[in-house]
Amino acid sequence: MIFSKNQKMVDVIHTDFHLLKITDRFGIKLGFGDKTVLSVCLEYGINPDFFVEILNVFHDKNYFPRENLKSFSANTIIDYLEITHRYYLKDKLPEIEGLIGVLVDKCSDENKGHYKLILEFFHDYRHEMKDHIKREDEVVFPYAREIEKAYNNDNVSDSLLKRMREYSIEDYYKEHEDIEEKLFDLKNIIMKYLPEPENSRLCYDVLNELFMLEKDMNDHSRMEDTVMVPKIIDMERSISGNKNAKE
């Protein structure tokens, strides 16, 4: 099912409650009443067309209208990517690490050493994510926003041209693979190789969180790799092309 902006927000959530993650990320609070997606978006100053596309992409793994997504401004896309980053760093990753911490605490002495290994694994992973996201937020995104600005104003500074020559946005995204693989490994280690947990319930909670995080991050990197990056590359090409034509 494909959602539309004229549907009631509450009906959207009834159809797929996982979308609460998206509303939460956009800062939308509960208490929708009978408001439509459109009126909620207007109230919060969110681009409704973009918001609906994000709901749909998140809801249906086969739905990914690449060209339509690319038609939104880089600013809009990056704003979303940035709030997702905050959600990972400030909420999700510390939450999961805390949960694994509880799991370790509740282990018998015999198992504790082994369970501590996954706590350390996740801890390292979280820091790797933090570094990766930091570089995106501080280098990649500002660069992308500047490219869009230069493209829109048809005015490119020499310093930006220099950066365009030195820096390739593509290189950066190769890191995504490693980040995804680590999460994959962690799930397998927990399911296949750790000694039987004394507290299965808690272990399921951890796994559940990891599976959801993995899905979320796959959607996120797909947005970065197949929407944002190609969009910026298109603009870079057009800027260099125009510059050459003028000279």
């Binding site: 290994l117 694994f121 693989e181 490994d185 190789y193």
Partner: peptide
């Protein structure tokens, strides 16, 4: 094993 990264293999 279904484990891809060096850190994962180390834990194993």
């Amino acid at each position: 094993l279904g484990i891809k990264t060096v850190s994962g293999l180390t834990v194993y």
